[in-house]
Computed example of a mutant assay.
Amino acid sequence: MNHIFYIMGKSSSGKDTIYKKLLESDALLPLVLYTTRPMRENEQEGREYHFTDRKGFEEKLASGTVIEERTYDTVYGDWTYFTCSDNIDLEKGNYLGIGTLESFVKINAFFGSERVIPVYIEVDDGIRLIRAVEREMREEKPKYTELCRRFIADSEDFSEEKLKEAGIERRFSNSGTFEECFSQVEEYIRSIL
């Protein structure tokens, strides 16, 4: 049986780096979500996200292929992120996805817990904040206000109560070295494949 390994964690936990490195092998197909937010520097259509606009989102919604969607009221306006069933075919192989706890819960409900495997990355909040600021400083136009909004929202979105309700038991700490965390995640996924 093929699976969807779903990476999640608070912002700046290292989940994007882990996701990209895991995709370097041929064992996992990328589960690419959609978003209405603007593309960041160094992002590419179809790699990080499928970038669309509000009209594109509404068309997908009308087609009945949207599994889950979230809209965030950001300092730059509403940004919607969503997953569509039309780009997931579990007959083709195992997928690797990345997203929020909320999106995991809905994808898990759609495909079933025997197919959707959570991979929760956690990092000390102080380390996360430093990483987030350093990453934003590299942007041509840093969005510090949005960084702060995301950081604060993560406390509620990934509360211990919500993690427990979602059935998240296994956690991977990325507060030490990246290599150590990545190795543990990779070994875990291989044990299921």
Rank of each mutant, 00 (worst) to 15 (best):
N2F: 00
S13G: 09
G14S: 14
K21C: 03
L23K: 04
A27R: 15
L28A: 12
L31R: 10
L33V: 11
P38M: 01
E43H: 10
E45D: 13
G46C: 11
H50R: 15
H50Q: 13
T52S: 14
K55P: 02
G56R: 06
G56D: 07
K60G: 03
G64H: 06
T65D: 08
E68T: 15
R70H: 11
D73A: 13
T74V: 10
V75E: 09
D78P: 11
D78W: 07
W79C: 03
T80Y: 08
Y81F: 12
Y81A: 01
Y81C: 02
F82V: 09
S85E: 06
I88C: 03
D89K: 06
L90E: 13
E91P: 09
K92T: 01
G93D: 12
Y95K: 07
Y95W: 05
L96E: 04
L96F: 01
L96K: 05
G97D: 04
I98C: 14
L101F: 00
F111H: 11
F111D: 03
V123S: 02
V123I: 13
V123P: 06
D124T: 01
G126H: 15
R128D: 03
A132F: 00
R135H: 00
R135M: 15
E136F: 10
R138C: 00
E139W: 05
K141Y: 13
K143I: 07
L147Q: 07
R149P: 07
R149I: 03
F151Q: 00
A153C: 15
S159G: 14
E165D: 12
A166G: 05
R170W: 13
R171S: 11
G176N: 09
T177R: 09
T177F: 09
E179T: 06
Y188G: 14
R190F: 00
R190L: 13
S191H: 08
I192V: 07
